[in-house]
Nucleic acid binder design. Structure first.
Length: 464
RNA sequence: GGUGGGUUGGCCGAGAGGCGAGGCAACGGACUGCAAAUCCGUCUACACGGGUUCAAAUCCCGUACCCACCUCCA
């Protein structure tokens, strides 16, 4: 079956045709590492991880590049406020981001390039643009280099905007621009900025403009033309529009498809605008497992706006527990891509329809539970369920989750010994039909935060 | 001013001309000493007003409300 995806550039769902058969070059704009990652940030990570996993499941060899922006205005400002070097802030936040991705089982990309590691590639690209007449060094001696928006007729095509309809940039510093809409490729160093935040260039010391890094890095690792470029919805303009303009103006065809994930908001407001301290990943993971948060994110389509709430997250965790419980009851099975239900494949092939795919997952769980209730073999359903979860990055048996569960084996063994002793006493009481004593023992265990479940094979316990 | 998106049952959340997505919650039943889990059943929704059509949540026109982007936000 053909994979189809919604292309932001054409505003329609269309067949995915790779440039090279069997291969996919995927570039995703990662984060600017300036603060702790929140739920909204990782949605992008999870969405594109699902894309990458699905493409691999379909047999594509995927080269996945997801960058990290480790130098920009905000990093410099925040680091200065905190009284520490900008690279220390960027480094710390980068580690936080990696931890957040790991705790949500977001697979590492093929490579995660840093902006600061690719200044020569950017200088090369900027030089090409100047030679082609699409960029110019500012005449005011600032050392800035700008992209000449008026020189590129196609400018605005990605977001269907005419240059004349755009609001002129309100940003304070139009030093040396020919047109207010021209954007910086290179920013000359200002006296107020640390020496470490500048690199030598033909136009004087300075640092990269925001957009140039992605064009340069995508070009380096994926070539002048590649398949899919992704990122958050807000990056369409100016970031992606500018990336495309500067790459194409330099003679590189750039991305064939553009994908953008929608927002997570709180109280109807963009997360980055709300305070959202309780919504950083470390804070959320104090209350919920990573796998539950991932399920919550995956159960909505990537282009749907999600209004975040802890109630909805709790509901998602309950729904996911139902799936896990079925797998527990059905016993061990192996992942087998051939076992994916047709409806699941169709849903995923249709622009990554994870919400519909989730419905198939639940249908299969019910089918399996029905078989178990009838005393029949449920291994077929179990294999299908586990494989679907695997494709979505939600397989509970994936060792990746062990990172967050942090089980202390010794402690577990000790508790197990104690609880088993009590459960044995209860089993004896039940055998004597001494229900009062049996329930008293269970209450004691429950009070300790442990849940007892009776099964045909005897009682089991889990920590709440 | 320009560009784009949204409004679906108690709640979350799919679908995009006909065939009740799915989950959560609730209620009834089965099973269980009681629970839990599970199974069966019940709850027939698409912002509003027109229109097109044999048939509209879905297409068209209008209205209301909400949201995003318009030069360094996932």
């Amino acid at each position: 079956m053909t994979f189809r995806l919604y292309d932001t550039a054409t505003r329609e769902v269309r067949d995915f045709v790779p440039l090279h058969e069997g291969e996919v070059g995927l570039y995703v704009c990662g984060l600017t590492v300036q603060s702790e990652p929140h739920v909204g940030h990782v949605r992008s990570g999870v969405n594109f991880d699902v894309l990458q996993r699905w493409l691999r499941a379909k047999g594509f060899a995927v080269t996945f590049i997801r960058n990290v922006t480790d130098i920009d205005d905000k990093i410099l400002i925040k680091a200065a406020d905190q009284g520490r070097p900008w690279y220390n802030l960027a480094g710390d936040m980068h580690r936080e981001l990696t931890r957040a991705y790991e705790s949500l089982n977001v697979a590492a990309p093929t490579y995660e390039p840093l902006a600061t590691g690719h200044v020569p590639e950017m200088i090369e690209l900027i030089t090409d643009l100047i030679e082609a007449g699409h960029a110019y060094p500012a005449t005011d001696g600032s050392g800035d280099v700008y992209f000449d928006v008026r020189s590129w007729a196609d400018y605005g095509s990605l977001t269907r905007q005419g240059v004349d309809d755009m609001e002129p940039a309100a940003d304070a510093d139009p030093r040396g621009k020919r047109d207010p809409r021209d954007f910086a490729l290179w920013k000359g160093r200002k006296e107020s900025e640390p020496e470490t935040a500048s690199w030598p260039a033909p136009w004087g010391r300075g640092r990269p403009g925001w957009h140039i890094e992605c064009s340069a890095m995508a070009g380096k690792y994926l070539g002048p033309a590649f398949d899919i470029h992704g990122g958050g919805y807000d990056l369409r303009f100016p970031h992606h529009e500018n990336e495309q303009a500067q790459a194409r103006a330099a003679g590189r065809p750039f991305a064939s498809y553009w994908m953008h994930n929608a927002w997570i908001t709180t109280a109807g407001e963009k997360m980055s605008k709300s305070l959202g301290n309780s919504l950083t990943i470390p804070a959320v993971l104090e209350r919920y497992r990573g796998i539950d948060l991932r399920y919550y994110l995956v159960s909505a389509h990537y282009r749907s706006h999600v209004e975040f709430s802890f109630d909805a997250l709790t509901e998602a965790a309950t729904a996911f527990a139902r799936i896990e419980h079925f797998l527990d009851r059905a016993g061990e099975v192996k992942v087998d891509l051939a076992a994916l239900p047709d409806a699941f494949v169709a849903a995923m092939d249709d622009d990554l329809g994870t919400a519909t795919a989730t419905a198939v997952l639940h249908d299969t769980v019910r089918e399996g539970n029905r078989a178990l209730a009838a005393g029949e073999d449920a291994s077929g359903a179990a294999i299908a369920v586990r494989t679907m979860l695997d494709v979505l990055g939600l397989d509970p048996a994936d060792p990746a989750w062990a990172v967050t569960t942090g089980d202390d084996d010794k402690l577990t063994a000790a508790v197990d010994a104690l609880v088993k002793g009590l459960l044995h006493e209860r089993t004896v009481a039940r055998a004597e039909k001494d229900w009062a004593r049996a329930d008293a023992i269970r209450d004691r265990i429950t009070d300790a935060g442990i849940e007892v479940t009776d099964t045909p094979d005897g009682p089991t316990w889990t920590v709440n």
